[in-house]
Simulated assay, not measured.
Amino acid sequence: MLLQDKVAVVYGAGGSIGGAVARAFAREGARVHLAGRTRATLDKVADDIRAAGGTAETAVVDALDERAVDDFTGSVAARAGRIDVSFNAISVQDVQRPLAEISVEDFLRPIQVAARTQFLTIRAAVRHMTGSGVVLLFGGGGPQTQPGLGGFKVSLDTMEGIRRQWACEAGRQGVRVVTLITGGVPESIPDSYAGKDELEAELRGPTLLGRLATLADVGEVAAFVASDRARTMTSATVNVSCGAIVDH
């Protein structure tokens, strides 16, 4: 298995993306530590992993809280001996409206949330990675954008800057830092969203393959990138957008 006996922490593990990646990590042999703010959703993912024969533990952690993040990673490392993989898939709490119509607070919120949570979770993990380790971010966007996104696209670009800087500094201790980017994952859109079918069609339109990534696709790619088979890959984006996002 790709991640046999690896110790992985997943933030936002109760969500669709985080849960998919956590399940994939566990299928590939990782001991997965699930973090998030809602116990019930974390327990659901943990139950699924255990039912499939995997190993999972849960912890309620606010990734905006410096002490909570440091205490969580310290506890994992104390019990497991190290941290091998860290993945952050938390929501950035964006408000999407044209820039001329949005408040300063709503514009800055996703940027601040992305910057703070990524910095805190990466720093905490890297402190417990010695000689090797992998940090995965989710949601870089490439050069393209579109009107009406508020601060959302800027928050994704902020994450890319964070990825580059951490890759530069943490690479000295053997830590790789990689971003997974998609053009949207329809399964992550709540069924209650009134325009789900229209949005899915809009997202599929610019793809080169005529389809979009599934949650399973994201999980499988994340597991590969986190594995030693991708040991030469760092300070990079892995594009699973089916060609919707053009490399630059």
Rank of each mutant, 00 (worst) to 15 (best):
L215D: 03
V95I: 15
R79C: 12
E220R: 08
P143V: 13
M1I: 08
Q144D: 13
G184K: 02
Q112M: 11
L3S: 00
T179S: 15
L64V: 07
H33P: 06
D247Q: 15
Q118N: 13
A100Y: 15
R39T: 10
G54P: 09
I83F: 02
A22N: 07
L64T: 14
E202Y: 14
V92E: 04
D47H: 12
A167Q: 10
A63Y: 07
S192H: 08
G210H: 09
G133H: 05
K44E: 12
V240A: 14
T73K: 07
N88I: 05
V218A: 02
T38E: 12
L203D: 00
I102F: 05
R164F: 08
R176Q: 06
V225W: 08
T182D: 01
A216D: 08
T55L: 07
R163A: 02
A194G: 09
R97W: 09
A52P: 03
G12W: 07
G183C: 08
A51N: 13
L3D: 00
A230E: 03
V32E: 00
V177Y: 03
V154S: 14
V32A: 02
A115K: 12
D47K: 14
T130L: 11
F152C: 04
V32R: 00
R31P: 06
L136F: 11
E66S: 15
H248M: 14
Q144Y: 09
H248W: 15
R211G: 04
A244T: 02
A13E: 05
V225S: 04
G171D: 11
E200Q: 12
S235W: 12
P186G: 05
C168H: 15
A30W: 00
V246L: 15
M129D: 04
G140Q: 09
L136M: 07
M233P: 02
G183Q: 04
A52G: 13
S188H: 02
A8Q: 01
F138Q: 03
A100Q: 14
I111V: 15
V104L: 15
S75N: 13
A89H: 05
R31S: 10
T117Y: 08
V221H: 01
F72S: 10
R231V: 06
S188Y: 01
K196W: 07
E160Q: 12
L209C: 09
R50Q: 13
A244M: 06
I102D: 05
A22D: 05
V69Y: 11
V218M: 05
A115I: 12
A167R: 10
V221Y: 01
L137E: 04
Q96H: 07
V92L: 03
A100C: 14
F119P: 10
C168N: 15
P186D: 01
